[in-house]
Simulated assay, not measured.
Amino acid sequence: MDCLLVLNFAWPRYRLNEEKAEWIIYVTDVGQQQHFNMFFKAARKAGWLPDNDKTYPRVNHVGFGLVLGEDGKRFRTRATDVVRLVDLLDEAKTRSKLALIERGKDKEWTPEELDQTAEAVGYGAVKYADLKNNRLTNYTFSFDQMLNDKGNTAVYLLYAHARICSIIRKSGKDIDELKKTGKLALDHADERALGLHLLRFAETVEEACTNLLPSVLCEYLYNLSEHFTRFYSNCQVNGSPEETSRLLLCEATAIVMRKCFHLLGITPVYKI
């Protein structure tokens, strides 16, 4: 299915007839909702769109709330100018790099690795902070909150993914070979809980797409990380009799996390 994300007010006739788009999504603030309702109604009366808004080709308006500053007003610079996204991303990357240096990572990595990791974490933090909230509600922008390595943040999730990769590396096992010969045995309650949550990935993606709510996928990803933390806290992996099964469970978790990151536009990191 071709899905076209539209960020302007261009009439969909060209996109429907020439580009053959099956689903056009207009993304603006919620204040434009009435305009788009009239917009789509006119297109249906003109015969350009089917009467049923669930039938393809289809169009949708995705409204979003305001980004607020800590003063509760629309997020702006001190000069009352609208803050540019590029400036937010640059600032997030800078702060992420400083945090990594404070943790001593500059002694372990090359300058290029440090820069790439800071960019992945900083950019991911800004994206995730925006997407994790219900898109219809306003939210307060805070670098300190979004770059926190605890709680429901991209930093926490990226660290969790890097930790899983570290567990697999430290095992010294060839995970691709284990996939061919190993078997999963989810005997512990926390293993089963993690496994069942992994199985919900497909239905979660479908729900997020159907309702145009990326926050649904964010919530799933955060809960997945929480399930993994409980599993790892209560189930020894490396050196245990269940090592093969638990390494495969770690790998399955990392794969699903990377799929979530990809859908959210976040670059995973493999070591922190």
Rank of each mutant, 00 (worst) to 15 (best):
R15T: 14
Y14I: 12
M38Q: 13
M38H: 13
M38S: 13
H35D: 10
Q34Y: 05
I24Y: 09
L16K: 09
G31Y: 04
D29W: 11
Q33L: 03
Q32W: 06
G31H: 09
V30P: 02
Q33S: 03
E18Y: 10
Y26R: 09
Y14Q: 15
V27R: 06
Q33I: 06
G31C: 03
Y14H: 15
T28G: 04
N37I: 07
V30C: 12
D29S: 14
Q33T: 14
E18Q: 09
R44Q: 03
A43T: 07
F40T: 01
A21W: 00
N37V: 00
V27E: 07
E19F: 13
Y26I: 00
K41I: 10
V27H: 04
V30S: 14
F36R: 13
F39M: 00
K20I: 06
N17V: 14
Y26A: 08
Q32C: 11
L16M: 05
N37P: 01
R15V: 12
N17G: 11
Q34I: 05
V30D: 08
A42E: 09
Q34N: 05
A21H: 01
F36C: 00
M38I: 08
Q33R: 09
Q32D: 12
V30Y: 02
V27C: 05
Q33A: 07
E22L: 02
E18G: 11
K41S: 06
T28P: 00
E18F: 03
I25H: 12
T28N: 11
F39H: 02
Q34W: 05
Y26D: 03
R15S: 15
A43S: 08
Y26C: 02
K41F: 01
L16F: 06
A43F: 08
A42F: 05
V27M: 05
V27S: 07
F36E: 01
H35P: 02
G31R: 09
F39W: 09
F40A: 00
E22W: 02
W23E: 14
V30F: 03
D29A: 06
N17K: 11
V27A: 12
E18V: 06
L16P: 08
F39V: 04
V27F: 05
A21V: 10
V27T: 11
V27W: 01
E18I: 08
D29I: 03
I24V: 12
K20P: 09
Q34V: 11
K20F: 02
Q33F: 04
W23M: 06
Q33D: 09
Q34E: 07
W23Y: 12
A42D: 10
N17R: 14
L16Y: 10
R44A: 12
R15K: 15
L16G: 04
N37A: 07
D29G: 13
F36P: 06
N17S: 15
Q32H: 14
R15Y: 15
R15G: 11
V27D: 03
G31P: 07
F36Q: 04
